[in-house]
């Protein structure tokens, strides 16, 4: 989209860390490296982790607003309080709700006219897989969303091997709706992440003996680490939060335990490969 109304197409991207990155076009098809957006208070615009943005005039006032899907914190609109050519983002995002009152969910929130009625709906992926959509039942130029409707069912979690292969989209699905094959029907692309297991060669007799000798030292280090974790967790949610000295003790215990953890996991024979595929669903 043209973020600054200067006639060329800019790019917006989300990030895992929660910022929105802006890649400004300096000429058609030429972009500057991404920089994070700030809100009108000068603070970094951030609404959660693992977010995806789309720019659209959500309030019909002639400028672009930001529609942001997050991994597990909902879907938000950041209003543009500036102008079409010089956006100024509101400090707080407005969480979108359906007309029955439920908060929208979507690891990405993608605007598309899914039902072909001339109004943009929201098609969304999910942290837990699958895809769903929120029909826009408002008048032209308005966004009023009906309850969520499933488009792609969430797969049941099961451990699969490289040999098994995948059966469908995994987790943290990101969706894009369009007519993929120019047949006049809406189709859906679903990107994912999923992990497939594979086995290493069995431990040799020498490695088994080494593991057995190491086990008591590992268990002792793990017990000390677990104590520090329990102490830290005992302060979560309490007034004052986690005291600095408790955090430091946890960090020290983690630093001591880390090499033990690494060596112990080296004896495991199963490993996983991380995959990210793009699944095509065609409208029938």
């Amino acid at each position: 989209m043209d973020y600054d109304a200067d006639g060329d197409e800019d790019i917006l991207s989300g990030s895992y860390t929660g910022e929105v990155y802006y890649f400004e076009a300096t000429a058609p098809g030429v972009w500057k490296q991404g920089v994070y957006l700030r809100n009108m208070d000068g603070n970094v615009l951030n609404v959660g982790i693992s977010l995806t943005p789309e720019a659209h005039d959500m309030d019909a006032d002639g400028d672009l607003d930001l529609l942001i899907g997050t991994r597990s914190d909902g879907v938000f609109v950041f209003e543009n309080r500036g102008t079409r050519s010089l956006p100024q983002w509101s400090a707080d995002g407005i969480p979108l709700k359906t007309s029955p009152g439920d908060e929208l969910e979507g690891s990405n929130a993608h605007l598309a006219d899914w039902d072909g009625d001339g109004k943009l709906d929201i098609v969304a992926g999910s942290e837990w897989g699958g895809a769903h959509w929120y029909q826009n039942v408002g008048k032209a130029g308005q966004f009023v969303f009906a309850a969520s409707q499933e488009l792609v069912a969430r797969g049941k979690f099961m451990e699969r091997t490289e040999e098994d292969g995948p059966v469908g989209p995994g987790s943290r699905t990101k969706v894009h709706a369009m007519d993929y094959n120019a047949d006049g029907k809406m189709d859906l692309l679903v990107g994912d992440v999923q992990w497939l297991e594979y086995q290493l060669q069995p431990l040799t007799a020498k490695e088994k003996a080494e593991k057995q000798a190491f086990k008591p030292k590992y268990k002792a280090a793990e017990a000390t680490y677990d104590q520090a974790v329990d102490e830290r967790n005992s302060h979560v949610g309490k007034p004052g939060g986690i005291p600095e000295e408790v955090l430091q003790r946890y960090q020290n215990a983690n630093d001591v335990f880390a090499p033990f953890r690494r060596q112990w996991s080296g004896y495991k024979r199963s490993r996983t490969n991380t995959h990210g595929w793009v699944w095509l669903y065609l409208g029938e």
Binding site: P166, W195, G276, V278, W279, L280
Partner: peptide, 21 residues
């Protein structure tokens, strides 16, 4: 479901996953 998209003869499988099309 039509299947996974390919580039050439191989499934598109992005680095450390989290594909966003």
């Amino acid at each position: 479901l039509s299947g996974r998209l390919k580039a050439g003869d191989d499934f598109i499988d992005v680095t450390v996953g989290h594909a966003a099309p």
